[in-house]
Amino acid sequence: MTVVINMREGLDWKKIKIGARFIREGKLVAFPTETVYGLGADALNENAVKRIFKAKGRPPDNPLIIHIAEFEQVYELASEVPEKAKILAEKFWPGPLTIVLPKGDKVPYATTGGLETVAIRMPANEIALGLIKASERPIAAPSANISGKPSPTLAEHVVDDFYGKIECIIDGGETKVGVESTVIDLTTDPPMLLRPGGLPLEEIEAVIGKVEIHPAVKGKPVNLAKAPGMKYKHYAPDAQVIVIEGERERVKEKINELIKRYKAQGMRVGVMATGDFYKADAYFNMGESEEEIARNLFKALRELDKSGVDIILAEGIEERGLGLAVMNRLRKAAGYRVIKV
């Protein structure tokens, strides 16, 4: 039995204590953050953390992000806290930024995927912060989806994947950002972007200077994943996804050409695009701004999948601001099936 708690109207301390009790008991609670919904457990309870991996079907070497509510908790989780970590936290926490630091002794290797580093963030969501405070535990939480599938931005998405499999789902309505947090590794010099996300790289560099971009961001294979989303297939619906990138008018022409081609083969075709109508079997208008597109990305993949299409054609966008995170997720969802025009 899964308890679903309605908190769409905002944080309710009486209700949040129900979720906090589950966390303290070593059980699993799905909860909203500003980015996507997380599947949470006590980050320092090895058995509880292992339940996350089992529920998601997640490889054990794919590290989890630990969510905190106060900066002082960083000192409990990391063995070193460099000045740049303090600067970034002061500027961007609470917010969609995860920092990677040397692991402290309290953190089990189950949480870090066997690594000597730990990923930490402070979410900008009152329900998430309330759950952490009420449970009096740092909470390890990957996205609350079956491993490899699109991340959840609504509680309904979590219900689809986990109802009857976890103890509690807290429904806080739709998430605001729509893509996961940006992950910056501060154990290297210069710092390195491991995963683009809800905080644009340009804003981070404006505060701490040059940040290198890990090759995995652009799709290069890696043997060692220091952050989620680097090594394994992610964000993919059941339908095949193809990304079409290039000058916008040529992209539109190519998508229309592909719609005709695939429909002639008897396939049902879905399109996710920025504002233009296509004569497909299903269509999702992503909006025009980077913020709208990011917020709608995973919802579009899930809804098009539910519509029963065989193939999803997705417009590419410019890799600036949140566009870098959007294109990182889209290419991964497509298994790097990209057509450039």
Rank of each mutant, 00 (worst) to 15 (best):
A141M: 12
P82W: 08
K84S: 15
L88N: 09
V118Q: 04
K149H: 15
A124K: 15
G148W: 09
A134N: 11
G104V: 01
I120P: 06
K84N: 14
G104R: 01
E90C: 00
G104Q: 03
P96T: 09
A134K: 06
N145A: 06
S147R: 05
Y109T: 03
V100M: 05
S147D: 07
V118T: 01
R137W: 10
N125S: 08
L101S: 06
I146P: 00
T98K: 07
P142N: 10
P96R: 07
K103N: 02
I127T: 04
T112G: 12
Y109P: 00
P94D: 05
A141C: 13
Y109H: 08
L97F: 09
G148H: 08
E90P: 00
V107M: 07
P102E: 14
W93Y: 09
I139N: 11
V107G: 03
E83F: 10
D105M: 03
F92N: 05
M122K: 12
I139W: 08
T117M: 03
I99Y: 03
I139M: 12
E83C: 02
L115V: 01
K106R: 15
F92G: 06
K103Q: 03
P138H: 09
V118G: 04
P138A: 12
K149E: 11
A144N: 07
P82Y: 09
A140R: 06
T112S: 13
L129H: 02
L129C: 05
T112R: 07
I146N: 03
N145F: 07
P102F: 11
A128E: 11
T117H: 01
G95L: 07
G130T: 03
E116I: 00
I120G: 08
S147W: 08
A124F: 00
W93S: 11
Y109S: 09
K133G: 11
G95V: 02
A119C: 03
A110N: 12
T112H: 10
Y109K: 15
M122D: 04
T111A: 14
G114Y: 13
P142H: 08
S135L: 14
D105E: 15
I99L: 13
W93P: 04
T117E: 05
Y109A: 02
I120F: 08
R137T: 06
T98E: 09
I99G: 06
P96I: 09
L129D: 06
A140Q: 08
P123V: 04
M122H: 02
V100S: 05
L88H: 09
L129R: 14
A141Y: 12
T112L: 10
A128L: 11
G114I: 04
T98C: 08
L131K: 06
P108V: 04
